[in-house]
Amino acid sequence: MSEPLVFQFDVDGNDFTSAGRASVQVKKLLRELGLPADVIRRVSIAMYEGEINMVIHANGGVAEVRVDERDITIILTDRGPGIPDVNLAMQEGYSTATRSIQSLGFGAGMGLPNMKRYTDEMRIDTEVGVGTTITMVIHLPQPQ
């Protein structure tokens, strides 16, 4: 695996029901690559939470997953409203989601903290009125 593998997905912002489809595909692709189950689970959960966020808050966007020998990198880019206060958004329990989203089982203010919990590195680049890019890195176990 000398060249990184790059997968790209459009995340449809108009359909809550379809949110998570890209994560399901990524999970399948990573399984085919024979990666460890716990790594696949962490990548899937982090990306799934990100995808849900893009649908709930940002009218969709683009998800890119890069796999090389050392890391899996997930880059989620949207042209949504941006996050005015990232520190506040990172607090467990803080959410700007509506009650109707909460009735669907999300919007409890756990999305971003969960993404951070399951990844080794996470960076949020955001500008109000322009959009948000979230980059998450998960290190692959290295042969001793």
Binding site: F16, T17, S18, A19, G20, S23, V24, K27, R41, S44, I45, Y48, I52, L104, G105, F106
Partner: peptide, 9 residues
């Protein structure tokens, strides 16, 4: 649908 996707993840 997200219930089943969550379980799958």
């Amino acid at each position: 649908s997200q219930v089943i996707r969550t379980a799958e993840m």
